[in-house]
């Protein structure tokens, strides 16, 4: 477990989670979690199903109210803010369910994101995901799982977010699309920071600058040396 590197240049962190605990009613799911992300970094959370990874992202995004601790993004405390204010502020959550607004067209899906962020420039989204161009006027519900995931990530990148919280982006997707997403994530890291929950270890090893292992609602390990992020190092936590 290496913690030294993360604390040295804390002033440059874009997202810093300290001592975060959260619960669904009586059931506690997160205990004293510390996570930090710097601009331009891709940080991954690994862990088994039910370890609390999704709960962590949801409590950062404001969908689950923390019972203790703080979430600071770009010098602003997010705890207690409404989810839509957090998203507007630039911390965007991409859920794992791959549910786009299926009754709306792809264009309308993007329009909504533009409406929320006042960013009407879709060039970059379409550059990342040229496939969306062909489906512009189709109902989003008719697209494949991979295309829906592209739309969800594309939607979230509008408005130049500070941090993207992406939940299991590659779950159930074809290998070709996973490769495509890997390149997109690398490109995205040039403009924003990413906190990704992912079980696909080869992908994690290829892109992550830092890895947190989460087990039973606690951070059990942190690997912040890029060279130390290997398949074997991560696998023991799955």
């Amino acid at each position: 477990m290496t913690t030294d590197a993360s604390t040295t240049i804390s002033n440059s962190e874009i997202l810093k989670v300290t001592g975060l605990s959260a619960a669904y009613g009586e059931a506690k799911v997160l205990f004293d979690i510390d996570v930090s992300v710097k601009p331009g970094q891709i940080v991954a959370c690994v862990g088994r199903n039910g370890a609390g990874k999704t709960s962590l992202l949801r409590s950062i995004a404001g969908f689950l109210n923390p019972t203790a601790g703080s979430v600071v993004a770009d010098a602003r405390n997010l705890v207690g803010m409404k989810p839509y204010d957090i998203a507007k502020f630039g911390v965007k959550y991409v859920p794992q369910d791959k549910k786009v607004f299926s009754d709306l067209t792809v264009r309308e899906n993007l329009e909504l994101a533009s409406y929320a962020t006042n960013d009407h420039n879709w060039d970059r989204v379409l550059e990342f995901f040229p496939k969306l161009k062909q489906h512009m006027d189709r109902k989003a519900g008719f697209m494949s799982g991979g295309e829906r995931q592209m739309l969800m990530i594309g939607r979230a990148t509008l408005g130049s977010p500070k941090v993207l919280l992406i939940d299991e982006p590659t779950e159930g997707l074809a290998p070709g699309i996973v490769t495509h997403l890997r390149n997109v994530f690398k490109e995205l890291a040039k403009m924003t920071a990413l906190l990704i929950v992912e079980q696909n270890l080869p992908l994690v090893c290829a892109i992550a600058d830092r890895v947190y292992a989460i087990k039973d609602g606690r951070v059990v390990a942190e690997v912040s040396d890029k060279d130390a992020i290997t398949f074997d190092a991560c696998e023991q936590y799955l």
């Binding site: 409404k82 989810p83 998203a87 507007k88 965007k92 549910k99 709306l104 909504l112 962020t117």
Partner: peptide, 25 residues
């Protein structure tokens, strides 16, 4: 209208609309 589209989207999934940064309230 964009507000109407947001309402249709929110009928489908209110959390995702919130996640985009639209004031669902």
């Amino acid at each position: 209208t964009i507000v109407g589209k947001a309402i249709r989207a929110a009928i489908e999934n209110v959390e995702h609309v919130e996640g985009l940064g639209i004031n669902v309230s």
